[in-house]
Amino acid sequence: MVRGSGMAILEGIGRGRLGNLFGMGLGAELLYSFVIIMICLMIYYGTKELYDLSSYKGIKYFRRAFLFFGVAYFFRSFIKFAVLYFDLNNLVDFPETTFKFIGAIIQFLFIYFSSMAIFYLLYSVISKKLEGKSNKILIFHLIALILALISILTRNYLVYLGLNLLLLAIIGVVVYISYQNKIKKARRNNLYVIYILWSIFWVLNIIDALIPRFFMGFQLVIYLASTSVFLLILYKVLKNVGSS
């Protein structure tokens, strides 16, 4: 039976979880999602003029990465709401068929958008090396669709973990190669450190959404760290956008 909305949300903010200091209630989850979505939208719209004027592909993919992150967090908030509110182990574990189907769709979209966000970010860095070959991004769309399909068909947390660790490994390799090229050009930049940290926390966020009690007690730390990294990237964006 679904609980009443007002009291349930208050309990979700933390009153029902006093024994778990670093756990997160529903209100805190929604607040976290809202903050991240806002940061993503600020980055997306903040860089609009730079792209409109330059039509530079790298900027296009960079913007799309954050748009997709924002959308992914939107679906993530649905997942967290459903899991916390209905006390589920998995989004597709709804007792009724209709909700089970809706849960599967939301999970599919979450995995697709989050995977594509990371792929777009990687592509923004490597796109200049693939001049004139923009159809390569279609391959990433296909990979993201396959990952999303696997996640809803298997419903196995080890598969989720494996897929996300694989994603993290791919990111690590691409970032490392790009960083090595940067060193050759003798330019120092802490960007790659930020991207690695961000990727790690992003994967942790995905695992946290899909395997609800995996990080029991450490969610606050993950969320604060993730927010910090997003804010760091927002700061770097606004520093450039604000200058002329």
Binding site: T47, E49, L50, L53, S54, Y56, G58, I59, Y61, F62, S124, V125, S127, K128, S178, K182, R187, N189, L191, K236, V237, K239, N240, V241, S243, S244
Partner: peptide, 22 residues
């Protein structure tokens, strides 16, 4: 006006591209 705006924003565009290694 748009062309003038490009010139005004040119440094910001280049700085952004270099900062994020795009």
């Amino acid at each position: 006006e748009k062309g003038l705006r490009f010139l005004e924003k040119y440094k910001a565009i280049i700085s952004f591209i270099e900062d994020f290694d795009l």
